[in-house]
């Protein structure tokens, strides 16, 4: 099999791609996609570990975790999209730089 470490490099890099996406993108849709990327990086990690526990066998625990976490990611995205609709109604744009009225 391919070495486990390459997969971990991949998932960590994917995680940082997601962070980069959250930090730099201006479109709100892309920010939501960035959150999805973050969650999927973790999901890939789970799946890879489940295969590498023993050769030829998988751990069903990681599979169930991933199935549930995909559904959770869907829930977050749904709420985020509903909020984006209202942000668009108020501001007339999807650009997050226009949403800087709060100081925090």
């Amino acid at each position: 099999m391919i070495m486990l470490d390459y997969y971990i490099v991949f998932s960590i890099v994917l995680f940082f791609v997601g962070i980069y996406c959250l930090a730099t993108k201006r479109n709100m849709m892309r920010i939501i996609l960035g959150i999805e990327i973050l969650i999927n990086a973790a999901n890939i990690n789970f799946i890879v570990f489940s295969v590498y526990r023993t050769e030829g066998f998988v751990d069903p625990l990681a599979h169930s975790i991933v199935i549930v976490s995909i559904a959770l990611a869907g829930c977050v995205t749904a709420v985020a999209l509903a909020l984006v609709v209202y942000a668009y109604k108020h501001y007339g744009t999807l650009d997050v730089r226009k949403l800087k009225r709060l100081k925090g």
Binding site: L4, R53, T54, D59
Partner: peptide, 13 residues
């Protein structure tokens, strides 16, 4: 990977 795993688990082929 799984160096610290000491518990029983249910493998699936």
């Amino acid at each position: 990977a799984f160096t610290f795993a000491k518990n029983a688990w249910k493998p699936v082929e």
